[in-house]
Design a protein around this nucleic acid. Structure first.
Lengths: 337, 337
DNA sequence: CGCGCCGATGTTTACGTAAACATCCAGCAA
DNA sequence: TTGCTGGATGTTTACGTAAACATCGGCGCG
């Protein structure tokens, strides 16, 4: 069934009785082809089922119209939603997306991904990753490939797009303080994560700026399970009336732990998350959380990398995408003593 | 900063003092190059930072070593996890993944995606989608491109890989019946979804096979919100002691609705979900659900499409990936009357 | 009426790679 | 020694496209 050879411009040219260059012009919508000729060529294309060979095109043009995306995992909502936005916007600009998954986030495997990308047909790269793994000293970027990094603070080396972690955190913590809570406890994401560190730092700073005592932070790893473990410990802290979880999954685990220990949310303890995953609205109770605009992050990543490709010029600096607090039913003033 | 031209084999050949063909042999690991020569070439490659040009390679070989993935949305856990598995396995086989997002799942836009893919540099396509949109009469596949479809029943037209929806559903419903429930209610996914229809059908058949009455099914759309609405209606059904939700998100919504109406899970009502998303373990209470092996689905998709590419031969038929019921705390025997 | 210009189309060439074929040389058997 | 064999390496060519340049013919203007 499979034809041994693809239809090439030469075939179309022969059938249409023109030169292959004219076919090329029609194919690219170049001017300088008279309507009648164009029609003949288009008819011949249709008849033969002609499709441009993108490899030859890329070879000739020296550009692939493709962006590579390196990411560590698609498991997190944030990563997949960002990727989706990237894919959509790239498609809109006529760029294709090539995916390079990195199984294990070690320096070596990230390096490997970069190497592979260098061999792949891409004009630019978007890295979605906790990026202290990206050591500029060891990673040699393929020449002529531009990079944008999401979810990182490598703004001095690369062009970075990120959610405004600090402001989102400030909104969350301030919201709890404004409700009248003495202080706010915090369950962190994994140590290696920049987003996690940034949120923890902003939490601490917001408390300090308000002159509150800073309780010890509880370690988590983004998973609901780790939130559950932290929640069990918080349930044993009588002084704890408000918790800020570094993401919604951990908040879910905290809700479960508090529920199992007979603590009411929000009457005994208020809980705030981060991300605003679609399910947050259906937690018990519906979760107050910081909404991240993943679509916007993706959009700006594409914008950034395309701008660099166009100008053939590396950029650095950080773009922050604003967040907003979504208040639902998991927060309330502390129970009167 | 950007070099005007890439390093080509000719440059390496010149520096190493050999012909470009020898460089090509080294680059591809072909035999017939003596060790000393190979070393020289490798050294020259390193010095110049040589990277093979994949466009030229693809042009010469007539194959791209790339698989296109068409998907409607990455928002669902299932899709992203499947995609991740696809990317990982494809990378392992030396294939790259090109992503083609379809913004709106209409016939037209799917067609558009196929057209775009035809122009893109892919050897095969994996479609992750509710696929009655794929009408064989209107979609003309680019020649020489092989297709595998996930999440569909188009097994007579394409090679299909899917979770064993029917058996998973049977396990879920039987589990509830075995616990002693008279019958099982069902909250469905969206009408247009094959997975949803398959689950609803299997639910009905399992009940009928056990000689139970089949309650009316409640419509949902995969979202937790729709589960919540269905849950509110179920809370008003005194006869309802067991619910099978077509996915975990809707189960979450049901749990919340029942909780708000003062119904205890599992004492008053047992709830089972489908998917086993990571958070299911942290629902209140932890959710009994049907575990889907998305990684395996992805793996088999890649296998299937690579086999077709290799043999240059279209295949049809369906491969089912088994599921298993994960029993947690949301199911129990009905309360004694 | 002829010159030159311009728009439409054709011809040549190069992009970087790798298959096919050609060449060269060392080693070995007659 | 000669001729042959086979492994190592070089040369030619083609993949499909599009830029650059070439050609052709008609039309306006002096």
């Amino acid at each position: 069934m499979a034809q041994p050879r693809r239809v090439s411009m030469a075939d179309v040219a022969r059938l249409a009785g023109v030169s292959s260059q004219t076919v090329s012009r029609v194919s690219n919508g170049s001017p300088g082809v008279v309507d009648t000729t164009r029609e003949q060529v288009l008819a011949a294309m249709r008849e033969l089922g002609y499709r441009p060979n993108s490899a030859a095109r890329a070879l000739k043009r020296g550009a692939f119209r493709t962006i590579g995306v390196i990411l560590f995992s698609l498991a997190s909502t944030g990563n997949s939603r960002t990727l989706e936005a990237i894919a959509t916007h790239a498609a809109h600009e006529g760029y294709a997306i090539t995916l390079i998954p990195v199984a294990v986030p070690t320096q070596d495997s990230v390096l490997g991904a970069f190497t592979r990308l260098g061999e792949l047909a891409v004009d630019g790269i978007i890295v979605i990753m906790e990026v202290h793994l990206l050591d500029a000293a060891t990673v040699t970027l393929p020449p002529n490939v531009q990079v944008v990094v999401a979810d990182s603070d490598a703004g001095d080396l690369y062009s970075v797009v990120d959610t405004d972690q600090a402001d989102g955190t400030r909104q969350a913590v301030s919201h709890l303080l404004d409700l009248g809570h003495e202080t706010v406890w915090h369950v962190t994401g994994p140590e290696e994560s920049f987003a996690s560190n940034r949120r923890a730092l902003a939490w601490r700073q917001t408390l300090e700026a308000a002159g509150r005592t800073v309780p010890p932070q509880l370690p988590g790893d983004w998973s609901a399970e780790s939130g559950y473990r932290a929640g069990l410990r918080l349930a044993d802290e009588p002084s704890c009336t408000a918790v800020f979880a570094a993401n919604d999954q951990m908040a879910l685990g905290i809700l479960r732990a508090l529920h199992e220990r007979g603590k009411s949310v929000p009457d005994d303890v208020s809980v705030v998350g981060f991300d605003d995953i679609p399910e947050a609205n259906s937690f018990i109770p519906p979760l107050t959380t910081v909404h991240q605009d993943f679509a916007e992050v993706g959009r700006r990543c594409v914008q950034g990398v395309l701008r660099q490709i166009e100008r053939a010029e590396h950029e650095t600096g950080t773009t922050l995408v604003p967040t907003r607090l979504v208040v639902r039913a998991s927060t309330a003033p502390p129970r009167a003593r």
